[in-house]
Design a protein around this nucleic acid. Structure first.
Lengths: 99, 99
DNA sequence: CAAACAAGTTTATATCACAAACCACAATAT
DNA sequence: ATATTGTGGTTTGTGATATAAACTTGTTTG
């Protein structure tokens, strides 16, 4: 019974991870507006993903204004793949057995 | 941005629903042992699924001992299908764009 | 300088997942 | 008859969590 990684199995975090999986990196406001999140919510979720080691956070500046950008780590990428696979197991576990 | 139904998007409930989707009905102990859940946990989740209208709970007796059995409703079945579809949208939203 | 703004973070709150404790009843032992 | 144990489940207490509001730090504008 493969477990579903709780750090991934959360709608907002899953969307963040999927978005990051298709891009080299994305910054705070891009994630925020693309996914339609409040700042607090996004900050909390990215922190958790960083603690899990799934996302790397890079703080810099755009001219003088601070800018934070996020990048999926290799661990994050592999956990994300494992998550989809675990989900596929659950999905195929249920249906009516073949006749 | 299709939302993920919170009543479905929970590992244990998802497994319960998937299990029920492949069977006419299942009773408490079958669910409990098959999914490896504590009694309290199973009871809480099935209650929630009933309140959502996704599962019908039927209380009866096996001889003299009480027996509760669970059956997926049509609503439950359709919500479950919608859930997998919503998830598929998220899944295909992320990947590297085609070259 | 003061007031508004930008980019995040910290906090308060409400919900939730879970197991321990509990309840109702049946079967068995004393 | 009455404890005692077992079975089938529900209720309750607790710790974790998702979210938005409030706050912080620094910048730009009046």
């Amino acid at each position: 019974m493969t477990e579903l990684d709780a750090d991934v199995h959360q709608p907002t975090r899953l969307r963040i991870l999927m978005l990051l999986s298709g891009v080299d990196s994305a910054d705070f406001n891009f994630l925020r507006t693309t996914l339609g999140l409040s700042k607090g919510n996004l900050s909390a979720h990215t922190s958790r993903l960083e603690e899990a080691g799934y996302v790397e956070i890079t703080k810099g500046f755009n001219g003088k204004i601070p800018n934070t950008s996020y990048c999926l780590t290799e661990l994050g990428r592999s956990r994300l793949a494992a998550y989809w696979q675990a989900l596929e197991e659950i999905r195929s576990s249920g249906g009516t057995p073949p006749s």
